[in-house]
Amino acid sequence: MLGLRSRQVDVVLADVSLTRPDPVQFTRAVLAKSPKTAVVLVGTMDPRCAAASVAVGARGVVRGGETTEDLVVALTQAIMLVCPRRRVVAGAATNASALPRQRGPRGLTERELQVLRGMSEGKSNAEIGRDLFVSEDTVKTHARRLFRKLGARDRAHAVAEAFRGGIVQ
């Protein structure tokens, strides 16, 4: 199976359609032959089956879309599941701990600025999260912090302050 007999494999990134009829058994089989391998399934599958795959050892299931752009997002999310201490920037993985934390206008972090830019473009928290490869809850946390730093009471007020202050254009 996948050359696992002849060498150690660090990551198996598998299209869900190739693991059918049983993605759970596929995950078990990979891990039985190579226990240290990170298994990430990509594609659409029943949530119960996805949960069962994770329960037997898959690192995660990343829902893939129908377009090339959706596939790139799904693959990037898969890479981030396997390498949580790395950050993907313009298609290249870089060590996040090696990058200095720089503060922008009014003490906003780069991530807070990214969230603010998303808000200024009219994106929802979920859309911003997908763009930044973070959860919606993480976006909400960044939003609360930037509201506090800008003295804003809500999204509209934060965006207005950002435009007035020249933080976004």
Rank of each mutant, 00 (worst) to 15 (best):
residue 81 L to P: 05
residue 40 V to F: 02
residue 93 A to C: 13
residue 71 L to I: 02
residue 66 E to G: 01
residue 82 V to Y: 08
residue 90 A to K: 13
residue 133 F to S: 04
residue 32 A to D: 12
residue 104 G to H: 11
residue 5 R to H: 12
residue 145 R to F: 08
residue 120 S to H: 10
residue 119 M to K: 15
residue 50 A to K: 03
residue 104 G to Y: 06
residue 70 D to I: 00
residue 127 E to V: 08
residue 91 G to Q: 11
residue 147 F to T: 07
residue 57 G to N: 10
residue 55 A to R: 05
residue 62 V to S: 01
residue 142 H to L: 13
residue 60 G to R: 00
residue 135 S to V: 07
residue 159 V to W: 11
residue 97 S to E: 14
residue 150 L to A: 12
residue 116 L to N: 09
residue 9 V to G: 03
residue 14 A to K: 03
residue 80 M to L: 09
residue 74 A to D: 01
residue 161 E to G: 03
residue 93 A to H: 04
residue 149 K to P: 11
residue 154 D to G: 11
residue 116 L to E: 08
residue 53 S to W: 04
residue 160 A to D: 14
residue 147 F to V: 09
residue 4 L to T: 08
residue 115 V to M: 07
residue 132 L to C: 10
residue 6 S to P: 00
residue 36 K to P: 01
residue 159 V to N: 13
residue 163 F to H: 15
residue 163 F to P: 02
residue 116 L to A: 08
residue 70 D to K: 00
residue 12 V to I: 14
residue 77 Q to P: 01
residue 32 A to I: 03
residue 132 L to V: 03
residue 150 L to Q: 10
residue 73 V to I: 11
residue 128 I to M: 07
residue 162 A to R: 09
residue 75 L to E: 02
residue 97 S to F: 10
residue 148 R to W: 05
residue 46 D to Q: 10
residue 59 R to K: 15
residue 90 A to R: 14
residue 131 D to R: 14
residue 1 M to T: 09
residue 129 G to A: 10
residue 78 A to Q: 01
residue 151 G to Y: 12
residue 65 G to E: 01
residue 11 V to T: 10
residue 76 T to Q: 14
residue 39 V to Y: 04
residue 6 S to A: 15
residue 162 A to C: 09
residue 100 P to A: 15
residue 132 L to S: 06
residue 41 L to P: 00
residue 57 G to S: 06
residue 72 V to I: 12
residue 49 C to V: 15
residue 143 A to N: 06
residue 165 G to L: 15
residue 129 G to C: 09
residue 118 G to A: 13
residue 140 K to M: 13
residue 5 R to Q: 12
residue 113 L to V: 12
residue 146 L to R: 05
residue 43 G to M: 02
residue 154 D to V: 06
residue 6 S to V: 12
residue 116 L to Y: 07
residue 85 R to Y: 07
residue 139 V to W: 10
residue 44 T to W: 01
residue 100 P to N: 09
residue 77 Q to I: 00
residue 112 E to P: 08
residue 159 V to K: 11
residue 88 V to I: 15
residue 98 A to Q: 10
residue 39 V to S: 05
residue 144 R to V: 11
residue 30 V to A: 06
residue 15 D to C: 08
residue 73 V to L: 01
residue 103 R to W: 08
residue 148 R to L: 13
residue 88 V to F: 05
residue 9 V to L: 10
residue 141 T to L: 15
residue 81 L to R: 07
residue 156 A to I: 07
residue 92 A to L: 09
residue 53 S to F: 03
residue 162 A to K: 10
residue 120 S to W: 09
residue 77 Q to R: 04
residue 63 R to A: 02
residue 129 G to F: 04
residue 68 T to A: 14
residue 34 S to F: 05
residue 157 H to S: 11
residue 89 V to F: 13
residue 66 E to A: 00
residue 114 Q to F: 03
residue 32 A to T: 11
residue 32 A to R: 14
residue 92 A to G: 04
residue 124 S to D: 08
residue 25 Q to L: 10
residue 150 L to N: 12
residue 47 P to Q: 05
residue 167 I to P: 05
residue 124 S to E: 09
residue 70 D to T: 00
residue 7 R to Q: 11
residue 111 R to T: 14
residue 39 V to W: 06
residue 112 E to H: 05
residue 113 L to N: 09
residue 26 F to V: 01
residue 143 A to H: 06
